[in-house]
Amino acid sequence: MKRLLLLLLPGMVFLAGRAEAQFQKGTVHWGATISAEGTLSNFETYESNRLKTGVHTITPSVQFGKFFKDNSLFGARLLSSFNYNKSDLKGPNSDNEYKNNNTNLSLSLFVRRYKFLGEKWAIFLEPGINLSYYHGKNTSDDVETSNGYGGGIYIRPGIVYRVSPRFAIESDLNVLSLNLQYYHMKDWDNFHFSAGATSGIQSYFGLRASWYLTQSN
């Protein structure tokens, strides 16, 4: 398992050694993850109509934090999601182009309390607030834009595996989550409340690379 996680991110340094089973006050924390996916397709009919579509989503996220006391962290996370859709229909009787671009930016401020389960594993509980901004743009015959603002509070647990004293892999577990969101869009307001508890661990969870840099080093 250690090797599995070790190999997840090439180029990281493996420093075998004793791990102190706590994060000291003053330690600086960085974390980052990214995911991307997309589809390009080209559809041609025998009547020589052609439809080209492209869908791309890229979701990078960075976070930064500092331990204000042992095992307690104050942090901020910037999560962004960029979504591009394009479709282009050309044929003897048609010529249509449609584009749709969405951007989501979300800034979270959070506090984390860690608890070590041995030298390598730790769990944390993370309550936080988030502010989000949404921008969407539709282009077909004319251009249509929409903007939205949102805010919410959440609490969720997570798990950390320390590969080395400085490097760790972490994952948020949606075992128990509480989320309150308010969205203000141009034409409509939306108040959204969701709370959930699941007994099982979800079948997949996103991984984040994280660094814990002790100031004295």
């Binding site: 995911s35 991307a36 996916e37 589809t39 997949y204 996103g206």
Partner: peptide, 9 residues
């Protein structure tokens, strides 16, 4: 169709 996925899951 061309699909790509980069997912650290």
């Amino acid at each position: 169709t061309f699909d790509y996925k980069l997912t650290p899951n």
